[in-house]
Amino acid sequence: MIEFKNVSLQLGGRGILRNVSFRVEKGQSVLLAGNSGVGKSTILKLILGLIKPTEGSIRVLGQEISHLPEKRLLQIRQQCGMVFQEGALFDSLTIEENVGFFLRENKKFTAEQVFHKVVEILEYLGLEQYLHYYPSQLSGGMKKRVAIARAIIANPSILLYDEPTAGLDPISANRVVELIDDLRTRMSVTSVIVSHEIHYFLDVVDRMILLKEGTIFYDGVPQLNLFANANPSKAKYKINNGERLYGII
């Protein structure tokens, strides 16, 4: 479903990724972890073709996208949902308009159909009373959930999450994680989650890819102790309720 083969990326003369290769199968959930600035979010942008690799090949939904023209890329992107780090909600649009944006832009639905679909999704997320609010009137956790609603409205084949728990208090973060887990089981969607707060996602993902200095340091079963090995100088550890370890950068 998603395949990176020897992908390298240089931006502004700086090497961001070096010979990155991995494959995500249909329905799989993968956590991309690593230190800040290691190129995790960049990989999501590469999957969507928002930036192009300097070298290597990227296949998404069976198509080689590294040299695809923008028009063809737009068609691929329409089958993907992306939750951006800060939500990236359109601040001049209401929550209803934000969530229904994709359907209004790309699909031939009536305004009434779009509205019903938006209400249905917002009810599922417990946000139906905020339909006519603007993003600036919502809390960080709510914005993240609205961003998820916007990403799933068109039943995408691939869902990409960029730091979905970043900047959230533990309760809001757990709600977002539960939501991601619920979506994974309900929609059987292929998910790629980028986060450095790996403790939240250990039970949610099938696999973990750990990045270090622009290369893949580990690819396999989710493990906490490897995160420390990838970031030996910066990682500190705390005991969470005496049960679980988690890394803090």
């Binding site: 942008k45 969507l48 928002l50 737009l74 068609q75 992107r77 329409q78 993907c80 992306m82 951006f84 780090q85 800060e86 990236a88 909600l89 359109f90 601040d91 944006f101 994709f102 832009e105 790309n106």
Partner: peptide, 10 residues
């Protein structure tokens, strides 16, 4: 990232 979001939505 709203521009990226627009592009991501095709």
């Amino acid at each position: 990232e709203q521009i990226d979001a627009l592009r991501a939505f095709g």
